[in-house]
Simulated assay, not measured.
Amino acid sequence: MTESATHPHVDEKVLSALQEVMEDEYPALLDTFLSDSQHRLLALQAASDPQAISQAAHSFKGSSSNMGALVLAQLCSRLEQCANQPNGGDIQQLIREIDHEFGEVKPVYERERERYSA
């Protein structure tokens, strides 16, 4: 079992399955997720119109879900829904929550990545 098994916001089974399927490409997948997530966060923070926010949230939701970051995916889903509503809800608060949640899970993926750098 990896260290991520102790983190409640990352599904260990998803990471194990990805490792099995990706084999030697697994570290590159982790690198891509970390890098893309940083770009997606910046896009969310910079976006000013609801459509751009919705698109960025949708993209981030998909990658987070695929990587087992289920709480992060749920927050992105909520943001996507809020951005598509006429009144929008508290979009900025959700973006802050997404930023915080990524800060929580990022070290899990970084530790997972370190296990494969030899």
Results as ranks from 00 to 15, higher is better:
S4L: 10
T6R: 07
H7T: 04
H7A: 00
H7E: 03
V10L: 01
D11A: 05
D11F: 02
E12F: 00
E12A: 07
K13H: 03
V14F: 05
V14T: 15
L15N: 03
L15V: 11
S16C: 11
L18D: 08
D24Q: 08
D24C: 05
E25H: 03
Y26W: 11
Y26V: 05
P27V: 04
A28R: 12
L29F: 14
T32H: 10
T32W: 06
F33T: 10
F33Q: 12
S35K: 12
S35H: 14
D36K: 13
D36T: 14
S37Q: 03
Q38A: 15
R40E: 05
R40L: 15
L42C: 05
L42H: 15
A43E: 15
A46R: 15
A46N: 14
S48M: 08
Q51V: 13
I53R: 13
I53F: 04
S54L: 04
S54M: 06
A56S: 15
A57P: 02
H58C: 02
S59N: 06
F60V: 02
K61M: 13
K61Y: 09
S65E: 14
S65F: 15
N66D: 10
M67S: 12
G68C: 14
A69K: 07
L70V: 15
A73F: 11
A73I: 07
Q74I: 05
Q74W: 06
Q74M: 12
R78W: 05
L79Q: 08
E80K: 07
Q81W: 03
Q81I: 09
C82I: 07
A83E: 00
Q85C: 01
G89P: 12
L94E: 06
L94K: 13
I95S: 02
R96C: 13
E101R: 11
F102S: 01
F102T: 00
G103C: 06
G103E: 04
E104M: 05
V105W: 00
K106N: 08
P107C: 00
V108S: 00
V108Y: 00
Y109C: 04
E110Q: 15
E110H: 07
R111N: 08
R111F: 02
R113A: 01
R113K: 04
E114F: 13
E114C: 12
S117L: 10
